[in-house]
């Protein structure tokens, strides 16, 4: 069944059927009802791909995730989905696996008009490439901002968050603090390492880069890093990790060698994943407003879809340090 068939059955022109489908004014009520009746009887479904191509609008937002294995993204997606549907947009979720080749492949959807805008949770592209794209299409970065990129973004203040977590350790009496960072998410990792460093220095404690270990975000890698931290001549009494998965890995290792977390060693993670509330011990963590990160990204991308030349906004949402059993200890 095509639009031509509907036109024939209703005894009107193809243009009239098209106007009815697109809810355009200027079709007499009687005619409109006749067309709608035929559509109903024949169960005709308009070809939206064709329609959207002509409209130059897909009403879809492309969401690019670096990986599916991090539970962190689930709630952000929920926020994105909710706000997008409130504005009558659908979302397309893609996974780039940290590969720019895949990222570029998905970004072609903008050119093909299969998506009106993009929310990128992590980009492997350099600032110049992003700026080039952002000049032509609505692109928003969420959580991970590429330094030097001129586009809207929303994230937390990663430096401040790590600063506050480290300061908390120091206020509990810790003098040697380790950090398990990572080597994927350059901007947030660098900011968190900087916050950790500044908290130590502001408190008059020595900063030694040797206390920062770079993981691959797998719990096994955190176990290995934690072993290295304990093997140091002067091992730390507290560890800050840049994700909850890493905190779990660290705690698992500490348990295995008989170090009691929250007593002999304090641990703070990042992201407030739901497991941190029920793990044994429960894990102190920096909570990010994940749902809001999602909704705000949609607001930003829609602002750009409506007017690409609108001035970019950067939004820093509040974070929260949540204290649980893994930081009971006094050093």
């Amino acid at each position: 069944m095509t639009i031509k068939d509907i036109a024939k059955l209703a005894g009107v022109s193809v243009a009239t059927v098209s106007r009815v489908i697109n809810d355009d004014a200027g079709v007499a009520e009687k005619l409109r009802n006749r067309v709608l009746q035929v559509i109903k009887e024949t169960n005709y479904i308009p070809n939206t791909v064709g329609r959207n191509l002509r409209k130059s609008k897909s009403d879809m937002i492309l969401v690019m995730l670096p990986t599916l294995s991090n539970p962190f993204y689930a709630k952000i997606l929920k926020g994105i989905e909710k706000r997008a549907s409130e504005h009558d947009y659908g979302i397309l979720v893609s996974v780039t696996h940290h590969e720019s080749r895949i990222e570029k492949k998905y970004l072609k959807m903008l050119q093909m008009k299969q998506a009106d805008g993009v929310i990128s949770l992590f980009s492997t592209l350099i600032a110049e490439e992003l700026n080039d794209l952002a000049g032509k299409y609505p692109i928003v970065q969420c959580c991970e901002y590429t330094e030097g990129a001129h586009l809207p973004y929303v994230m937390i203040d990663n430096k401040k968050a790590a600063y506050e977590a480290t300061k908390y350790f120091i206020s509990s009496g810790h003098k040697r603090i380790g950090m398990i960072s990572g080597s994927f998410y350059e901007s947030s990792e660098r900011a968190r390492e900087q916050g950790y460093k500044e908290a130590l220095m502001d408190s008059g404690l020595p900063f030694d880069e040797g206390y920062i270990f770079k993981s691959n975000y797998k719990p096994e890698s955190a176990m290995e890093m934690c072993r290295k931290l304990l093997d140091m001549p002067e091992p730390p009494t507290a560890v800050l990790t840049v994700s909850d998965t890493l905190a779990i890995g660290a705690i698992k290792y500490l348990k295995s060698v008989g170090v009691e977390v929250g007593k002999d060693m304090d641990v703070i993670g990042f992201d407030n994943a739901s497991i941190t509330r029920v793990y044994d011990p429960t894990i102190s963590t920096v909570s990010q407003p994940r749902y809001d990160l999602g909704t705000v990204s949609v607001d930003l991308v829609i602002e750009k879809i409506n007017n690409l030349s609108t001035v970019n906004k950067g939004i820093i949402l509040p974070h929260e340090l949540i204290l649980r059993e893994s930081t009971r200890g006094e050093a």
Partner: peptide, 26 residues
Amino acid sequence: TVSGLILIDTLEITLDNEKEFRNSDI
């Protein structure tokens, strides 16, 4: 609900792009 810090980006304007800027919405 609105929260956090909202930063409004800047734009570098030189002799090269001042004409273009005069066509902007701002």
